[in-house]
Lab assay of single mutants.
Amino acid sequence: DHDVVPEDKFQETLHLKEKEGCPQAFHALLSWLLTQDSTAILDFWRVLFKDYNLERYGRLQPILDSFPKDVDLSQPRKGRKPPAVPKALVPPPRLPTKRKASEEARAAAPAALTPRGTASPGSQLKAKPPKKPESSAEQQRLPLGNGIQTMSASVQRAVAMSSGDVPGARGAVEGILIQQVFESGGSKKCIQVGGEFYTPSKFEDSGSGKNKARSSSGPKPLVRAKGAQGAAPGGGEARLGQQGSVPAPLALPSDPQLHQKNEDECAVCRDGGELICCDGCPRAFHLACLSPPLREIPSGTWRCSSCLQATVQEVQPRAEEPRPQEPPVETPLPPGLRSAGEEVRGPPGEPLAGMDTTLVYKHLPAPPSAAPLPGLDSSALHPLLCVGPEGQQNLAPGARCGVCGDGTDVLRCTHCAAAFHWRCHFPAGTSRPGTGLRCRSCSGDVTPAPVEGVLAPSPARLAPGPAKDDTASHEPALHRDDLESLLSEHTFDGILQWAIQSMARPAAPFPS
């Protein structure tokens, strides 16, 4: 592969990997390779389809078979030569091979799209000592099968071997295949498990690692696999990028399955594409389908809103127990993405979901129960707010008499603000006073009005108090039968009158 990737590009890729991570280095090298001529790309395919690569990765054979028959990708048995050289000459001794072996032994695996480039050397060096003999053996194999790289107009793939297949390693990572398949204008990513390549439709969760975000852009890794992070704060999961590491605690105790298979379609829109997988259930989501939507993949363990709600429900009964003089119970939860139609709101002032922060849900004790107040519409209280300059209440639009249902020339009671006709409430011909108009209920007259088809109010509507207090003497005590009587009149003013009279009014101040 030294004929494909020059030394300066190799060093530039290593520097970019240390600065921005393996995914960015892979993407940059792939983009550079696509700008080369067809001879360089053909050399790339020839390096990929060597015999030892085909033996190690069985899924490469179907890719090789898909090439046109007129494309010669065979390799000479006596060494490598550029395709432009007409004579089959043995190339001179390859010093770059020693360079590659020494550099890969030092860096474990470079971040390139060629056999030198995919593992994360920093994480491997940190986690190597417990498994040094086995990992050293794996390093000797890295130059042979560490990076199976493929690129063409139909298929483009980048393979990364790992030393996680050490025997006896619980939940060992089998390997990473960062794979971009450009077929019919689409893009897919796969993962390699035990020599087999699994596409998103049959993606397997190998051991402790999972394909957290099938994305090839942005600074985030394709698999949430930063070796420096180790395990999740809650004892979460091992990262795919942690090559040759000792077994780590796999999943939280509440995880239903340690080796679950995540779905390959969004649980909201039932469509495929780039998904984020939940650590607590097999569901996966688009970032845009979450509520609120996320802009980037959160670091650490992530769970959907259903799993978060289940966790909150487990903690909430203990938080609601009476604990005198104790601060509110704080339950730190990872930043969760909410699927459509589901929402768990945190306290005000918290950062938005999706940031690399930890939301704190506070379970406050329930407030003391209070008697429910009568629910009145805002339009129902409008007549009470229509007060004239002299303190006389004006008529609201649409006000109707509670007896006849007519809204023409209605009066407004100064005591309960109900609309009424003087002739309907006082049919006996009582003279109307000039000021202080009161309806039949507030004036103490319980004589029913002779209106055909309208039920008369119940005599129990009024329960006047002592006459010594004029204001308190007109406080009506309405009961269920009074409400039914008012409802039978089918008037809004009657219902409003009952609601206003049912509310307690402050006692009249004593004259000074």
Rank of each mutant, 00 (worst) to 15 (best):
R345L: 08
A472M: 06
L373C: 14
E263P: 07
Q325M: 12
G444T: 00
C404G: 02
L359I: 15
T435E: 04
N262C: 10
D493A: 03
V312L: 10
H382Q: 07
S502N: 02
D409A: 07
G280W: 13
C269T: 03
S339P: 11
R318Y: 06
Q392W: 13
S379D: 06
R412N: 13
A460K: 07
L411N: 08
P509K: 03
A288H: 08
P383K: 06
P374K: 08
P511L: 13
A288I: 14
C278G: 09
L483G: 05
D482M: 01
R283G: 14
H259V: 09
S306D: 08
A428H: 13
A477T: 09
P348Q: 14
R505A: 02
R423W: 00
A366W: 13
E330C: 13
P298H: 07
Q501N: 15
S485H: 10
P247N: 14
R438Y: 12
E343G: 07
P365T: 13
T331P: 06
V344F: 12
C277S: 07
C439K: 02
I495L: 05
C386L: 14
S291Y: 12
L333T: 12
G349L: 06
P334D: 09
V446G: 08
T331E: 10
E475F: 06
H286I: 03
T358F: 14
R338P: 05
N262K: 10
A428C: 08
C386S: 05
L250Y: 13
G436I: 09
P249K: 13
P253V: 13
E475Q: 10
E350F: 15
Q260T: 00
E342T: 07
G436K: 05
H286A: 12
Q313L: 13
P293Y: 12
A399H: 04
P317L: 12
Q393H: 12
S305D: 11
R270E: 09
A248P: 08
W498E: 00
P293I: 11
Q501V: 02
E452F: 11
R505I: 15
I495N: 03
L483V: 08
G391F: 15
D264G: 08
T408G: 04
Q497V: 00
V268I: 08
E452G: 11
H490T: 14
P466I: 12
R432L: 10
C269H: 06
C307P: 15
L308F: 10
D469L: 09
A477E: 14
Q242C: 11
S305Y: 11
A380W: 12
E321D: 13
P433V: 11
D406I: 03
L352H: 12
C442E: 01
L337W: 04
F285R: 15
F420R: 02
G407P: 13
A310W: 15
L364T: 08
Q242R: 10
S339A: 12
P448D: 13
P466Q: 12
R270F: 15
E274Y: 03
Q309I: 10
R303L: 06
A319T: 14
P324F: 13
D255Y: 13
K261I: 05
R412C: 02
A310H: 10
T447V: 15
R345Y: 06
D406L: 05
P506I: 02
H259I: 05
R432M: 04
R400P: 05
A456E: 06
Q393D: 07
P328S: 13
A371K: 11
E314I: 12
C424L: 01
E326K: 07
A284I: 08
L252G: 04
